[in-house]
């Protein structure tokens, strides 16, 4: 191992950044702020976990933001207008989004198309479909929404670990285990290394591709439900551009955009970094919230440069060897 693995660097950036914030605003270092940070970014953490799988496998999923938007509208209409019991609505939308992801994966594999284009089409499709359902914000008044919103574990220091935060943490941990400990996880990395080689080595590449995009869309669906808990409404314009925040979190978390390397925990840290910047800006009060984007942009550049540096380092000993042979 040369130097620090990218995940560790992400962790260091997070801790150092948090320490800096805490020096300026001591109130930041409280369970209350941290608890809110987790709640506010719950949906991002969930969808970013799915994106991690996609990116490690060498793909990309641009449709997740639209799937979240569609989910909020669908859930709101199903409960409020169509009279579906909330749980039935949830199951229906999760089945729908999983099928949507599976279809994108199948198209990518069968027609050998770039994931960028296929999921871009998926993005327009899902967004358009949500406008078709409703163009206005639909408030959700079902009792389960207030129950879930009110539920929270009390943390020492007055913080609250909300239901959505707990769901997110469970998904991050589940995703990390799936990626590290199972055959499925190993195959995700294999696909990112080289699809052709993975196929030669016996990996069912087509089935894997379908499953990976299915997982990503399914998690986007869950993120959409969580988002609707968070806002208690369904709106077709919600979560516009979230796919890019998600990709940013994945890359800042140390996952190689070209695939083959990365981790779910790193992505989680990447989400927290973005949340931390947002929190800092809220505390400051004078800064425009767009500074979040600027800081994220700077961090992205830094991490991409760092990864290139690490990749170059990893190649160097090989070059040296070749020289020594002659």
């Amino acid at each position: 191992m040369k130097g620090l693995p990218p995940v560790l660097i992400t962790a260091i950036v997070l801790v150092a950044g948090f320490a800096l914030c805490a020096v300026q605003f001591p109130n930041i270092a409280s369970t209350r702020v941290v608890g809110n940070l987790l709640t506010d970014n719950a949906f991002l953490g969930i969808v970013a976990t799915g994106m991690t799988f996609v990116v490690i496998s060498g793909g990309i999923d641009l449709s997740v933001g639209s799937v979240i938007g569609f989910t909020t509208v669908f859930v709101a209409l199903a409960i409020e207008r169509w009279g579906m019991p909330p749980l039935v609505a949830f199951v229906a939308i999760l089945a729908l989004s999983a099928a949507f992801g599976a279809a994108m994966g199948a198209v990518i594999h069968v027609f050998d198309l770039p994931p960028f284009i296929v999921t871009l089409a998926g993005m327009f499709l899902a967004r358009g479909a949500s406008f078709l359902l409703s163009t206005e914000s639909v408030p959700i008044t079902a009792p389960i929404y207030s129950t879930v919103s009110d539920f929270a574990l009390r943390l020492p220091g007055g913080g609250r670990l909300t239901a959505v935060a707990i769901i997110m943490l469970a998904i991050v941990i589940g995703g990390a285990l799936l990626l590290q400990l199972t055959r499925f996880g190993a195959n995700v990395y294999a696909l990112g290394g080289s699809r052709a080689t993975a196929s030669l080595m016996g990996v069912a590449v087509g089935r894997m591709t379908v499953k990976i995009y299915m997982l990503s869309s399914l998690l986007a669906g869950i993120a959409g439900i969580v988002f609707s808990f968070y806002t208690s409404a369904g709106y077709s314009l919600s979560a516009v551009g979230v796919e890019l925040d998600t990709i940013a979190a994945v890359v800042i978390g140390g996952t190689l955009l070209t695939g083959g390397q990365g981790s779910a925990i790193g992505t989680f840290l990447g989400v927290l970094i973005q949340g931390m910047i947002q929190t800092y800006i809220n505390f400051d009060g004078t800064l425009s919230s767009w500074w979040t984007k600027i800081a994220t942009g700077v961090l992205l550049f830094a991490f991409i440069a760092l990864q290139q540096g690490l990749v170059a380092l990893a190649r160097r000993p090989v070059a040296k060897r070749a020289g020594a042979v002659s």
């Binding site: 990395y189 990112g192 080689t197 030669l200 080595m201």
Partner: peptide
């Protein structure tokens, strides 16, 4: 000659 394995695993 070009080894068909996955260097990242």
């Amino acid at each position: 000659q070009e080894v068909n394995l996955l260097p990242n695993l």
